[in-house]
Nucleic acid binder design. Structure first.
Lengths: 204, 204
DNA sequence: CCGGGTCTTGTCCATCGGTACAATGTCAGC
DNA sequence: GCTGACATTGTACCGATGGACAAGACCCGG
């Protein structure tokens, strides 16, 4: 555990990265899927084809994955983080920064190229504002609390996640959901999502 | 620089936090605005009135701010991060976690209660159209049969119903669904619906 | 004070959903 | 002929889900 790897397609190595981690091992994507396990620190180039899926499988397996990009973008950063990566930076970042990054991500942190970070957070914040301001006549017959549950469920969260979000028990979430289903005449959360997302697209 | 502070309104101290940072100084909001400067590590309780503005001013001034909450929520986490905080956690987090958090944020990292982090990232990602926006169509990577299943599932039908509809076994539906989830990088049918219905309403 | 509505939580249970271990057959391409 | 992608189905497991059958706390109007 705690070794390091990188997966360039077949391109040359990254000098600054190598300077930061002289003892790291190099692997190809195939070897990675075979050898990487819990706690390994992995660095993946976004140039690599299928990097996103690779990141997903490796991080699900417990590896600590960082993505390096030749041309970092907002969208790619989000994509990497969503895939389970814990770090995202420019491929030519100086060694000190890469080492710092390693410290952060091995302590359960997230590290993103700072200017991107502001955009990521800002984007998420605005996205939430949009989601929270969602009103529809569908929800009119519901109580305050039921509306809250319905909206969060419509984001795709599980009962457990909704419970945490609203600081109540999973049992209570179920209670509200039961009432919602009964009042709206539907049978499960799938139909709730459909009802709400159809409503949503009629925004003037 | 690098001292630590906290700002409870007037409430009692947090034992676990104190255990993590025995040498920290305690300040009120007023003193904070006067004394905190570049590089200071600050911990703010979200119970404190006007915490968000305080976080904003302090972090603009170069302080490293973390927010502690009695009842952490998705919205509050985003709000804190957007205000410039670099850490967000439960107020009763164990000392080891708090110290780890400090390591992360003093190295330019972001630290958020891991389960919230997934939601923060996932929410932002989906709000921007998800992985689909990287391609032109969500379903392009799928096979003929997988597309068929995806479309029917997105209508809100259960596995059993999909099976009847396509004249195959429920088991086969599950097989296709598994492949769909893996290829699209999602975890369940709810996110499939969200991805597809989002695509519909997307305006280029 | 009492009834009703709302919010909350509990236990129990049948079912559903997703995944991990498969296997079988087809069909296109090298 | 063999390999790889695709479609199909099986068994088994386990967490998630929704319903049944409760109960206590709070608040508000009658």
């Amino acid at each position: 555990m705690a070794q390091m790897f990188i997966f360039p397609p077949e391109s040359g190595e990254l000098p600054r990265w190598r300077e930061a981690f002289p003892d790291a091992r190099l692997l190809g994507p195939q070897q990675a899927r075979a050898q990487v396990g819990e706690g390994d620190k992995v660095w993946v180039m976004s140039r690599l084809e299928g990097w996103r899926e690779l990141v997903m499988t490796l991080s699900q397996r417990g590896a600590v994955v960082s993505v390096l990009s030749q041309s970092p973008t907002y969208a790619e950063a989000l994509s990497a983080l969503d895939a389970g990566a814990r770090g995202y930076a420019h491929a030519l970042s100086p060694p000190e920064l890469l080492r710092q990054m390693e410290i952060v991500i091995s302590h359960q942190g997230i590290w993103v190229w700072p200017e991107l970070m502001k955009q990521v957070i800002g984007g998420a914040f605005r996205a939430l504002g949009g989601a929270a301001s969602l009103h529809s006549e569908v929800l009119e017959g519901l109580t305050e609390r039921e509306r809250a549950v319905a909206l969060v469920v419509a984001e795709g969260l599980s009962n457990k996640e909704v419970a945490r979000q609203l600081a109540i028990t999973e049992r209570t979430v179920k209670a509200h959901l039961g009432a919602i289903f009964r009042k709206l005449g539907i049978r499960d959360r799938m139909q709730l999502i459909l009802k709400l997302s159809h409503q949503e697209s009629e925004v003037p």
